[in-house]
């Protein structure tokens, strides 16, 4: 693929926190994302919605570098994430570059993926100690502060198997935040939860939006929640952004036929 058309770095005047530039992802002949262009500004909360198979989760996974991309370039804070500069041109990123860039991104998963052999506290200390090289005492203080923030401080010595889904997800949020990311990704973090504990997780995310200057990208099926807290809604359909708008505009006056259909179907399901 020809990368000469892509800048080595985004100019100061046009530097969103995240920029997807013509990003394409396919598995064999199945195109999951088709030449995606998407900017996310510093401090913005963007919700990604759409029918399953529309490629919305893939967007997050590519940004977390869990998936490679087939074409295009992703920039984070102006610098290429999926590529690096060598001899004045862009080449695919090596592991060292990915590790450097990944430091500013955190992610929470649908199935929490806590480390089952560690307590809640240990889960939150693992990254800061092993990756950031924080002294144990400092990592512990940071972990305890975050566990308190998500309301899990009194369960800090429990293993994940002893916690409910909602509790596990709150620990997972604290764990991701302990790495002090500038971008947080939430991949259907309430989809695997029982209805009565969804609120305790969305409450934590609301708090993050209100009190922190994080850039956030969230894939969700909860339209009401997305409408409440997002700065912008992106509706994905068949690997493309079909429509994007501010929540009020998006939910009250959707422009595209596909969007209207989707919103009707979601409403009927409720």
């Amino acid at each position: 693929m020809d990368l000469s058309a892509y800048p080595l770095e985004l100019p100061e005047s046009d530097r969103p926190m995240v920029r997807f530039m013509n990003v394409t992802k396919s598995y064999g002949s199945l195109v999951v994302l088709d030449s995606l262009n998407l900017d996310i500004q510093q401090g913005e909360m963007v919700s990604v919605i759409g029918p399953s198979g529309s490629g919305k989760t893939t967007v997050l996974r590519m940004l977390m570098t869990l998936e490679t991309i087939n074409d295009g370039v992703i920039y984070v804070d102006g610098k290429p994430l999926t590529h690096m500069v060598r001899n004045g041109r862009l080449v695919p990123a090596d592991e060292a570059h990915l590790r450097r860039m990944r430091a500013s991104i955190g992610m929470c998963f649908q199935h929490f993926n806590l480390f089952p052999h560690m307590t809640a506290l240990q889960n939150c200390m693992e990254g800061p100690v092993q990756v950031l090289g924080l002294p144990k005492a400092e990592a512990r203080a940071r972990a305890e502060e975050l566990l308190a923030m998500v309301g899990m401080i009194d369960k800090k010595d429990q293993h994940p198997s002893r916690l409910s889904g909602g509790q596990q997800q709150r620990v997972a949020i604290a764990r991701a935040l302990a790495m002090r990311p500038r971008i947080m990704l939430f991949d259907e973090v309430t989809s695997a939860l029982d209805p009565e504990v969804i609120g305790e997780v969305t409450q934590v995310i609301r708090k993050l939006v209100a009190e922190h200057d994080l850039t956030m990208l969230m894939v969700t099926h909860q339209m009401g929640f997305a409408r409440d807290i997002s700065d912008r809604i992106c509706f994905f359909y068949k690997g493309r952004i079909e429509e994007q708008a501010a929540p009020e505009q998006f939910f009250t006056n959707p422009q595209r036929e596909r969007t209207q259909q989707f919103l009707r179907a979601v409403k009927d399901a409720d």
Binding site: M64, N113, E126, Q130
Partner: peptide
């Protein structure tokens, strides 16, 4: 597989 994904998201080295 989710355990590997958590490791990556926390930026652990392959060895760790």
């Amino acid at each position: 597989r989710g355990q590997w994904e958590s490791c990556r998201a926390l930026n652990l080295t392959t060895r760790d």
